[in-house]
Simulated scan of single mutants.
Amino acid sequence: EDAHGFSLDSTHTSLLLPALNFEHSGLWILQGWAPSQPQKPKGYPGMWQFPKDPDKCCIYRVNANLRRVNAEAYTPQLVIIGPLHHHLKSQALRSLGDITNTKSMGYVNLEEHKKIYLAKFAGRVVDGSEIIDGFRRTIEKHEERIRESYSESTTWIESSEFVEMILHDSVFILEFLLTRYSKIYGKKTGDPLIDEPGLTVTIDSDLMLLENQLPYFILHNLFHPIFPRLVPNMTFRESIIKNFGYRNTIGDDSKFSHFTDLARCVRVESLQSLDQRRYKMLEHVFNADKLHSGGVKFEALEEEFSLEVRFENGCLKMPRLVIYDSSEMELRNIMALEQCHYPYTAHVSSYVDFLDYLIDTDKDVDLLVEKGIIRNAIG
């Protein structure tokens, strides 16, 4: 009997001792107990995926060689869309309070903004909550196909989390467009993404990044049926084309897989009437100043997004290239898409290579600017 009035006879001891084993460490542990093995994760961010149908894969991570030149050109600055940068959200949350980490602060703010936009959209129509539930069911129905759109495995994102991510990201894109269209010039909306031009431009740029895409088919399935109720006399597709400044530059029957692909499509369409088999690969081209000194004339064509270059009667005719703040980012992402998805028809990359041949010195730039082939619209 111990000091507390409890006693252990041999019977009780025999019941307890087989279940307990005293280790030299001084710890009592249950016999047969072993530390639980951590469950193997279903995957990690960045793991390659081998899809059942490779033709459905259209959204890629930019390879290291391209990223090394200018990583920021491929990285979202404010809004994260889709799964390829989804892991950055948790990293951003860990840096809360660090006001020097402006990019992480932006990510966190935009995740909250997505929730605001979801509620705002639900309030646009009487049956908003039912429509949101319908969106969720549509995403669940197409979840496998959405996942197959990415070159990397997304199995590390649980199904419910994946569906909510696609829902919030999709509605964010739609509500951003709707709020932008309804803005009255000179009047503040109370939405910093709309009221502050710098943020608006950043969102537009982020929505064009190859790694920051949603497959267009799911946006179309979600929003095409309801869009006439929100914006009369305009389709969802037309609103997207208008938002990126591509009006009257793409055919009604032209298909694109996502917004980066749209940017490529409006440029490549100018080549559809040409017989590619008639042309040979260029082995060498002199720079613009040497060509001009040799008697070659230069003429700018007005089609801004065209890639068609013609040499006729001693005159090199090229489409006008307008350089905006976002031009480098946009072209780099289109070229990255071509390397992954269109390696045998990399027409935008070929056009940029041709420009690289022409431009070696400041004299070349000055000449092309003088002839109207390059126009600086930065700032």
Rank of each mutant, 00 (worst) to 15 (best):
L301P: 04
E304T: 12
N313H: 14
I323D: 02
E303I: 12
R267F: 12
D261C: 11
L282D: 03
Y324D: 03
N333K: 09
N333S: 02
F298N: 01
Y279D: 10
E303Y: 08
E304A: 11
K255C: 09
L301V: 13
S326W: 12
E299T: 11
M335C: 07
D325R: 07
L337M: 06
K280T: 09
L301W: 13
M281V: 15
N333P: 00
L321V: 14
S270A: 08
L274T: 12
V268H: 04
Y324K: 04
L331R: 04
V266S: 06
A336T: 15
V268K: 02
S254E: 09
A288D: 03
E308S: 03
V309M: 03
Q272M: 06
P319C: 01
F298Y: 13
F298P: 05
L291K: 05
L301D: 08
T260Q: 00
E299M: 14
S254P: 04
S306G: 06
I334D: 05
E302H: 13
E330V: 14
I323A: 01
R267P: 00
R332N: 01
A300V: 10
C265H: 12
N333W: 05
N287A: 07
D253H: 15
V322N: 11
N287Y: 05
I334M: 00
R332W: 14
N313A: 15
E299I: 14
E302I: 14
E308P: 06
C265A: 05
R320Q: 03
T260E: 00
E283A: 10
T260V: 01
D325P: 04
G314H: 09
F286I: 06
V309S: 00
C315H: 07
R267A: 05
F259E: 03
Y324G: 00
K255Y: 14
F259D: 01
K297D: 08
K290W: 14
E304K: 02
A300T: 12
L271F: 11
V296Y: 08
F298M: 00
F286E: 10
F256K: 04
I323R: 00
L337G: 08
E312D: 15
M281I: 13
M335T: 13
Q276D: 13
E302V: 13
D253F: 15
L301K: 06
I334G: 11
L271A: 03
A263M: 04
F286W: 07
Y279W: 15
V322E: 11
K317P: 03
C265D: 05
E308Y: 15
A336D: 02
L274E: 05
V266N: 07
K290I: 11
E330A: 05
D275N: 12
S293E: 02
F259L: 09
L262E: 01
M335W: 06
N313F: 15
K290T: 15
I334C: 01
L291E: 02
E312Y: 05
R267C: 00
F256L: 08
D252H: 05
N287K: 05
F305I: 09
S257A: 11
